[in-house]
Design a protein around this nucleic acid. Structure first.
Lengths: 94, 94, 94, 94
DNA sequence: GGTTTATCAGTTCCTC
DNA sequence: GAGGAACTGATAAACC
């Protein structure tokens, strides 16, 4: 088998896997839609449920983002420690 | 159990199912990324693979409709002759 | 004026300039949206126009390189015969 | 001039305007980069300035988002006003 | 160069 | 069903 055919097979395999995974994701999306449909049928406000899910997902992400921001500021102050301006800034923070 | 508590339990269940499904989707997304990463490592052009996957999602009617329109618009701008595709379109008109 | 205040003024000026430039960019974005809206109103296919603008950004070498690769990958998957482009590629090979 | 040529001219004009606006945006982007470069040269921490600009931009957006979330909840309660579950929920909020 | 981040286009969902 | 808003996915840019 030529090198080209080998690459061909490899590519087929890769794209096959991607398309299979995409298919599974589509199925899951349909499942989620089904749940929302059911929620709506039970009288819940779908828009608010979506918002709740969104907020719960953001929660942990946001927490780590806040911490990394604090890290950013602290490391910047650290870098400034040997400049006059930085010493002044650090003095104000302390 | 009061009506309100019943609704509470129902809501918790719905949100739980949604979040579980979302989790499964995240796992699949990670799998897809993994495949793309592997494709890149094997020397394939990831951007092109994405485009190919996208094209294969369309049926062939959609695909050629899209190509024809792009040709048409490009030709209106005088860009046609620069592309092999454009020469094809010109050939069809003659 | 202290060194610190000098830095403050400098910083305010820099941020002010950045924000003014960002504001101008937002205005331009709104203008572009307006043009697309108008195009849509005149019956043009906005999605195709976006694609055309994107293609025109590439030089012709890039464009044909991209097309060739897409053809190549599609042909490896056996999709070639379905597209006009593919037939063109086949013709070149013969 | 044929109808087709008219459309052609229209399309040329539209795309010309889009490309001109894109060009102006590119110039502004270069200006912003220039300011950041200057900031860096003056000893400021570019990463933090970017963060500050980002936060200031988010500020007003976030405020209106928060308000719209409140609106969402209130309107949902309004819709519930004529259901037993809703009356219970409203009673708890009051 | 490669990883992460920010902007941008595309899709989907909901409203009117 | 058309139009707009929200969300997701892709591209482009910045920093290391």
């Amino acid at each position: 088998m030529s090198r080209s055919n080998f690459a061909s097979e490899e590519l087929k395999s890769l794209i096959g896997r991607i398309e299979r995974l995409n298919g599974e994701m589509d199925a899951l999306k349909a499942d989620v839609s089904e749940v929302y449909k059911q929620a709506k049928g039970t009288g819940f406000d779908v828009k608010i449920i979506r918002e709740v899910v969104r907020l719960r997902k953001m929660d942990s992400a946001e927490r780590s983002e806040r911490e990394s921001l604090i890290d950013l500021y602290l490391s910047a102050l650290g870098d400034l420690a040997d400049t006059p301006l930085g010493q002044h800034a650090i003095a104000k923070v302390k």
